[in-house]
Design a binder for these strands. Structure first.
Lengths: 128, 128
DNA sequence: TTGATATTCAATCAGACGGTTGACTAAGAG
DNA sequence: CTCTTAGTCAACCGTCTGATTGAATATCAA
């Protein structure tokens, strides 16, 4: 029974643990990459790998528990959809250290401009 | 003997594995947080935790292997210094999904301006 | 109904992980 | 030299992890 002291330190966040742990595996990172833009079935997700479908299924469960993937089952198949929301906290965490990449600051600003942001609306995000 | 297919996929990066794995533990995240700005000794790093110094030392070794911390020993003590360089790749990776946080885009732009950037370099290529 | 397909569950296994205690090396302090 | 301090090394332990194989559960097709 470890005394947890929850909330005392914002970094002691189990959700963040799960997100970073989920991202620490190359298979899961590839899964997330493939789910960027399209929702796929387990079978489709498993196809490129030479590990068993069960292993991929377990990887997906890890992603689900991290909140990065949602599965909606319809009939026999289970369509997996990306939910990048929990990754935001992780991004905030690592970006706190962006000051140390000042050299690559241009590159850092680059994805801000290059990542799907077709035109910079000068005002107002177009809230979906 | 797994055929690795190294380089075929940029996401299959063991360095990235180690960085994300290092970040997946709250103790190590707190260590990194405390090393942000000042270099500390192992003893000083271990003080706030109620785990043994050896355990903290092992955590530091994990950070060192991930390239996030460098240790320079002078005499008896070992001063630990943050090296956020390897975190940059991790930041690039998660930031690829920033388009999904469009709602929090303001916050995302916030750390760009608000994160410890007290005085920008006077020559400062910040002409957007 | 029969059979193939999609996915998960269950048991198992080797190895990594996070923690402990105890011993060790090496450097300062007396 | 002796004692203490800083840090790591080594062995151990319980749990988690990533993978396997085999069985179970549903769903769809014939």
């Amino acid at each position: 029974m470890v005394d947890r002291q929850r909330g005392a330190d914002a970094d002691n966040d189990e959700a963040l643990d799960r997100v970073f742990a989920a991202l620490s595996d190359p298979v899961r990172r590839r899964l997330l990459s493939r789910l960027d833009g399209e929702a796929l079935l387990v079978k489709e997700l498993a196809a490129p790998f030479n590990i068993s479908v069960q292993a991929v299924s377990k990887h997906i469960q890890v992603l689900v528990k991290a909140g990065l993937v949602r599965q909606e089952r319809s009939g026999r198949v289970s369509r997996c959809r990306l939910d990048a929301g929990p990754m935001y906290e992780a991004a905030l965490w690592v970006n706190r250290y962006s000051k140390y990449w000042q050299d690559q600051f241009d590159t850092l600003a680059l994805w801000l401009g290059a990542a799907e942001r077709p035109k910079r609306k000068r005002n107002s995000r177009r809230q979906s």
